[in-house]
Computed example of a mutant assay.
Amino acid sequence: MKLGLHQVTANELDPIDLIELAASVGCEEVCLFTHIPAAALPDDAGQILFPLVTPEKVVSTKSALDCHGIAVGNAEFFPIAADVDVEIYRSGFEVAAAIGARSAVTHVHDPDDARAVAGLGRLCDLAAEYDLRLGLEFMGITPACASIERAAWFVQQVGRANIGIGVDALHLVRTGGTPADVLKVPASLFAYAQICDGAGLHVTQDYFSEAFERMLPGDGDFPLADLVAALPVGIAVDVEVPSAQRIAANGSPLDFAREAVGRSRELLAAIGKRAR
């Protein structure tokens, strides 16, 4: 399984510094932001919440990736809303393709199933122009697609070859999903997985703050070993463990990332041949 370092695990760093960090902790990939919807910007300061690879930064970012032998797994993020014109994502896809991204992340916010399926189809077609696969993430905070079953339904309804499910451990647990539910989904429908840990196995839609303060693998209650074993063999796995509090406690993003990646590698190694 390829191990990727997600930008939000070291959100204090710009993309080039994240690439260097990923190389130093032994990751094969990074996940970077090439588009951020306006709704994700603060109302007043206008400050971008996530470091962004802009068209102007493509050359320097690609140079850093090539220098360190790091690939780009996912490009974030391209949501489907009721009124979205997917053409607004073209520039973000162009940047993603230019830096060699394999997948682009999407979420479904549109409560109208037929319209959402049509929108996802158009997004798939646009992504295909750039040789990108879509990873559809289900979340309790997006009621239109709030379970792994719903994500599988959307992928099957869209009927495109370049879309699959992105399984985030936090979202799986908080939406009531289990590793057994992952096993019920055909292996061909998965795009990637993301691992972190958390306290308790309760189901809730109110976990936005927890999404940005996650626990290191092994520190919480999530059934991570069973989850990873339920995933298809060879699937890419992202280390997505944002936590400004823990980074401050550990002293540096490097120390925190090294710990997060080390824990993740131990987890993957312990699974051995259990993965399907």
Rank of each mutant, 00 (worst) to 15 (best):
F77R: 01
V84N: 06
G46N: 05
Y89M: 09
C67D: 08
S103R: 14
G92K: 03
L52R: 04
L65Y: 10
A45P: 01
V84K: 08
V72E: 01
G73A: 12
N74H: 07
Q47P: 00
R90A: 12
I99E: 02
L52A: 00
V105F: 14
Q47F: 05
G69T: 11
T61F: 08
A82P: 06
K62D: 02
L65M: 13
S63H: 13
G73F: 06
A75M: 09
S60G: 00
Q47E: 13
A96Y: 03
V72H: 05
T106A: 10
K62R: 15
F93E: 04
A98G: 03
R102Q: 12
V58G: 03
A98D: 09
D43Q: 11
I80A: 04
A97D: 05
R102C: 05
K57P: 01
F77S: 07
A82S: 15
V53N: 04
A82L: 15
P55T: 08
V95Q: 06
V53M: 07
F77P: 04
A96S: 12
I99Q: 03
L52V: 01
S91E: 15
L52E: 01
A98F: 03
F50L: 01
T106Y: 08
S103I: 00
T61H: 07
H68N: 14
E56L: 04
F50T: 00
A75H: 02
A101G: 11
A96C: 08
S103E: 07
F50D: 01
V86I: 15
E56Y: 00
V72Q: 03
A38Y: 04
V84P: 07
P79M: 11
L52S: 00
L49Y: 02
P55Y: 10
G46S: 04
A38L: 13
E87N: 14
P51V: 00
F50V: 01
S91G: 09
L41F: 10
I99A: 03
A39L: 12
D44W: 08
I48L: 10
P42L: 08
A39I: 12
L49K: 07
I99G: 02
E76A: 10
C67P: 00
Y89S: 09
